[in-house]
Write a protein that binds this DNA or RNA. Sequence first.
RNA 1: GGGGGAGUGUCCGAGUGGUUAAAGGAGACGGGCUGUAAACCCGUUGGCUAUGCCUACGCAGGUUCGAAUCCUGCCUCCCCCA
Length: 391
Amino acid sequence: MSDLTKNAVDVLPEGRLAEQLGAGRPLRVKLGIDPTTADIHLGHTVVLEKLAEFQRAGHTVVLIIGDFTARVGDPSGRSSTRPLPSAEEIEANAATYQEQAFKILDRGRTEVRRNSEWLRMPPEDLLGLLARATVARLLERDDFQKRMAAGTGVTALELLYPLLQGYDSVAVDADVELGGTDQKFNLLFGRSVQEAYGKPPQSIITLPILVGTDGVQKMSKSLGNYVGVTDPAPEMFGKLMSIPDAAMPEYFRLLLGAEQPAEPPNRAKRELARRLVDRFHGAGAGERAEAAFNRVFVEHAVPDDVRELELDPFLGANGGNEVHLPRLLAAAFDLSSSEGRRLLAQGGVKLDGEPVPAGALDIPASLLDGKILQVGKRRFRRLVVGPPRNS
RNA sequence: GGGGGAGUGUCCGAGUGGUUAAAGGAGACGGGCUGUAAACCCGUUGGCUAUGCCUACGCAGGUUCGAAUCCUGCCUCCCCCA
């Protein structure tokens, strides 16, 4: 019992969860995720790990893929209406979400449902649902209050979101629903909806929102400050090494369930990164990622798995056998050729570790073949003439 | 339905006829320092076949030698009244 509420911010209503657990029956523990982006990141795993704890205690997890609600747009914590993903994106994301969630959840104790199963209901049923809540209640939430005060609009669709999420709880007979603290209103509202349908109201548990790698904003794909559970090991390690020291205690507590060890910050952060890489890539992956990290950032050497780039398509400048560097950079690192020029002008481009002189825009292919093209500290490509020699 | 206000570059936000590819800030990127931390310093930040050319201030037209700035229509958003 005490385990199951560790790290929780709210466990409501008071005493309810203890009662439910005391009854000895396996509980149906619900989590809804809207497939609005492609990847599950470490922020999601805080809640997923909690679900896994419930599973280990013998309870059943009901994972709801919000393929219908993704088309409505959860207003939680938003300062403006979010752009909605297309049907194709939702479909694609729904598939990857499940796969990624099972990196943490026990497949055998998880019931996966899509809320389009029940939310795609006849209009008269939908109206029946709408009749069960008052506008005043829907407007209570403070994120709406803020938005209305700020003059940014709230769409009628967003207003309805909590009703739909609440109906999910009705549809799956949820005993408990988990979510981030930003979900508190929606979770509580679900109780009202269940009651309105004559069902026993769920208890709710909210968990802290993990801060992103910038250490300031919540972790989110759209903010670009996330660590995806499917990120390659070296990338995951690197991203974790880049978090501000101030964010470390939170990462230790929420992701590892431990206190930050009393050792120099750099050592602690390496441990954090190793352990998390191990978790998602298997034992030993953390050490390998750390070794690769040391090679690039401590020894300033070239990583051992540099992708190759074929030079042939870029031949042609100055009579045929020179390569126009801005274009090469653009293709190699997904830049514009103007950006490539700027990097050259700023001395940010190296060949085999040697800075390329600012004025050099065209270089004979023979001088590039086999060399390592580098931009900044961490972007590399091995240049080759002819077909790639390895993958 | 009536009245009022607003739409600027990745974001925020100046700019009301002419050195404006558009102040300033944030973010991002490059360089320095370093622990891919923080803090700090410097630089860059529309695109291109690049000493020039093209595109750009909601959309479409118009006035003008010249428009983000003026006019007309349209679209979108917000506020107040009903």
